[in-house]
């Protein structure tokens, strides 16, 4: 089986529950993750989730290019909503936040790209 198409490793119950809350917010309220091609989705996932992680951890965020600023705008709103809806997030140590966001990133890459049933994702043109 192609490694890239397998679902990420199973998580413990608490982490899985927390990840599900974050995923539920994104899938119900965001649009940035649904660009039309695989390569676009990977750029979006990487750009916005990494910036969200930096915001949640109080780290500096690169907003140097227009694309960075666009990703950052989505990330700021998402980080605020995460903190509002998931109070436990504000009390988590930074390394745990990073681990959780990393698991979220892997999971979204799977359901939106590598495990996606959307046949248009691999079209070479827009």
């Amino acid at each position: 089986m192609d490694e890239t198409k397998s679902n990420p490793e199973p998580l413990d119950e608490v982490t899985a529950g927390r990840l599900a809350q974050l995923e539920d917010y994104i899938m119900k309220n965001c649009l940035w993750q649904f660009h039309s091609r695989s390569w676009d989705r990977r750029v979006q996932n990487e750009g916005i989730l990494s910036k969200t992680t930096q915001i949640l951890c109080g780290e500096p965020v690169d907003t140097g290019t227009p694309l960075d600023r666009c990703h950052w705008a989505d990330a700021v709103v998402m980080a605020e909503e995460f903190q509002r809806r998931c109070p436990w997030l504000t009390e988590m140590p930074k390394d745990e936040v990073k681990a959780l966001m990393d698991a979220l990133h892997k999971h979204l890459d799977y359901i939106l790209i590598d495990g996606s049933l959307n046949l248009e994702l691999t079209d070479q043109h827009y």
Binding site: N29, L31, W32, F34, P66, L67, R69, C70, W72, A73, D74, V76, V77, E81
Partner: peptide
């Protein structure tokens, strides 16, 4: 860059304007 927004609904629209403002 492309910013996808929702113009419908109180909260989605509010967040959309906020994102444009943040940009």
């Amino acid at each position: 860059p492309r910013l996808d927004i929702d113009g419908f609904g109180f909260e989605p629209l509010g967040n959309s304007l906020r994102k444009i403002g943040l940009f």
